[in-house]
Simulated scan of single mutants.
Amino acid sequence: MTISRTTAPPERRAPEDIEAVAVRHPGRWIAVAVIAVLAAMFIHLLATSSVLHWDVIGQIFTYRTVLAGLGRTLALTVLAMAIGLVGGNLLAVMRLSTNPVLSGISRLYIWVFRGTPVLVQLFFWNFLGALVPTVGLGIPFGPTFVTWNYNDLVGLFTAAALALGLNEAAYLAEIVRAGITSVDEGQTEAAHALGLTQGQTLRRVVLPQAMRVIVPPAGNETVSMLKTTSLVSAIALEDLTRAGQDIASRTLHQIPALVAISLWYLLLTSVLSFGQYYIERYYARGTSRTLPDTPWQKVRHNLLALKRATATGGAG
């Protein structure tokens, strides 16, 4: 005879409450403390230095020659980027062409202008009149109908715009080419199947999709061009940097002049970066369901995150 024994089920206990412990990041707080100390030292230096002369900086910031140089700097930036954009798009299309002559010319141009310094190209365009004294219109290797003196035709400003713009075209050509090749070939095939020509396909299908790849580096090139214009002071063109140098040499206030000019460059690059962000946000509409935050939204989110981190650190 078999005797069966029933085992009583184990007594169930209520789960204990989990005590959540916030992860501590001592390295972050140490880094914040170090940065805060360095920032305080820098602000103290700016406030107490006897060399800066903030009243002189304010006068130089709005000085007549500085504002005139600022206008030339902005004009050079706009003209150089316009030449660079037109030339860069043309060179990119030539580089992608199946015609070996067009592709070879584009490669040669990019090789020459990317391989030589911008300052050398500025000097070249400025002194080209020694090699080509006159420029004329006529029949090649035949009679010339109209001639101009090179130095009268190409002044300092024109030489600077040509040097900066043609150099920039070589870099923008590679940026545009990278953007065009980033678009799937199926888009081009579908456009051709709908009856669009090569030019229509490039203008209406490929380039709008390539802009999200082109805009960020092109924006960086614009900011870089604004600062590269300072090199034109080497050919005695009165730009923003040259105006600051002239004031420093006359008044012997070198540091205040440099600070005033630097503040103008910082202001202008900030405006350009702000505009670049919104252009990138515009072209990102078709690639993301949610648009990236605006700068003000980022600031608000960062402040909220800092507030939460401070509260968590204090509780820990």
Rank of each mutant, 00 (worst) to 15 (best):
T181C: 03
V146F: 09
A33V: 00
R242G: 00
A311N: 06
G58F: 07
L303A: 14
P26K: 08
L164C: 07
H253N: 13
D152C: 02
W29D: 14
S249K: 10
A36W: 02
H253K: 08
T222F: 03
P9Y: 01
W296V: 15
D55A: 14
V37H: 00
D246R: 07
I18A: 13
V259Q: 01
S224W: 05
A234I: 15
L108D: 03
L304C: 02
T269M: 04
A20G: 02
M1P: 07
A243K: 12
L162T: 10
T144A: 08
L263M: 15
V56L: 06
R72G: 06
Q297S: 12
N220W: 01
G69C: 13
F157W: 09
P117T: 07
D246G: 06
A8K: 13
V101R: 05
Q245K: 10
V135Q: 04
F157Q: 12
T2A: 11
V183M: 10
V32A: 15
L196H: 04
S49R: 04
W296K: 13
W148K: 09
V132I: 15
W54A: 13
V32Y: 03
P208Y: 03
A191H: 06
M1H: 05
S273Y: 01
S270C: 09
G58D: 09
A210H: 02
A284E: 06
E238D: 10
G165C: 06
F127P: 02
V34H: 03
M81C: 11
A309K: 09
H53C: 05
P140Y: 03
L226P: 02
V23W: 01
L226C: 09
I60A: 11
V21I: 15
T294R: 14
S182H: 04
E280P: 02
V78P: 04
V206M: 09
R177M: 08
E19W: 00
P26N: 09
Y265M: 10
S224F: 03
P10L: 11
V78K: 04
L128P: 00
R177W: 00
M1N: 08
F141A: 14
R24L: 12
A161D: 07
Q121R: 12
V118F: 07
G27L: 15
S4Q: 11
I247N: 05
V132M: 13
Y283M: 05
S262M: 08
T188N: 03
V132F: 04
G286N: 11
L74M: 14
Q209L: 10
T188Q: 08
A210V: 09
A75L: 15
A160V: 12
A284Y: 00
Y265R: 07
A248K: 11
V120M: 14
F42D: 07
R281N: 07
T65A: 13
S230P: 02
S230K: 04
I235G: 08
T2I: 13
V135A: 07
T228P: 00
L263P: 02
R285K: 12
I139M: 11
K307Y: 04
R242M: 12
N99F: 02
A170F: 06
A33I: 00
I30R: 05
G87P: 08
R204A: 09
Y109K: 05
T294K: 12
Q245L: 11
